[in-house]
Amino acid sequence: MSDQKKKSLTIVCPSCAEENNFAQGEHVTSRCAKCSASFYGKKYKHIKYLSAGLVALSSMLGGYAASEIVNEARLPALAEYRLMNLCINGDPRVVERNRYLIKEETCSCIVTKAVEDIDLTWSLISEERHQKWLFESMKEAGALCR
């Protein structure tokens, strides 16, 4: 992020989508400069972009579209479903129903932890190790969820 961006505040108008930019120290108006709609009565939250690691994982799972990756720090629903489905059902051996339910919970824990790990530490890993590390990340999460 550029220094200029770090020192400014941008409010995207909920009514007309106009970007209202305010420099640091500048008075922040309560109305949109374009349509005059009030900014009050809404809750504003920082938008966290999907990390490069999660974009890469989503691509491998084939479950994302460019439009889906802009404003959530979690995998798109289809990618997450495929990850869970493989963790739960990848082993085709018959299991008792109560164990299957425990496995669902374990896999939910593994996916949650692995996605957090990938999101937080992706930039620390060299590019050529990314794919191997994705798998390692899942494996390590597996050990933490037992």
Partner: peptide
């Protein structure tokens, strides 16, 4: 990735 996740599923 599929092979790695199938192996993980078996380990679980």
């Amino acid at each position: 990735l599929e092979a790695a996740l199938v192996a993980l599923s078996k380990r679980v």
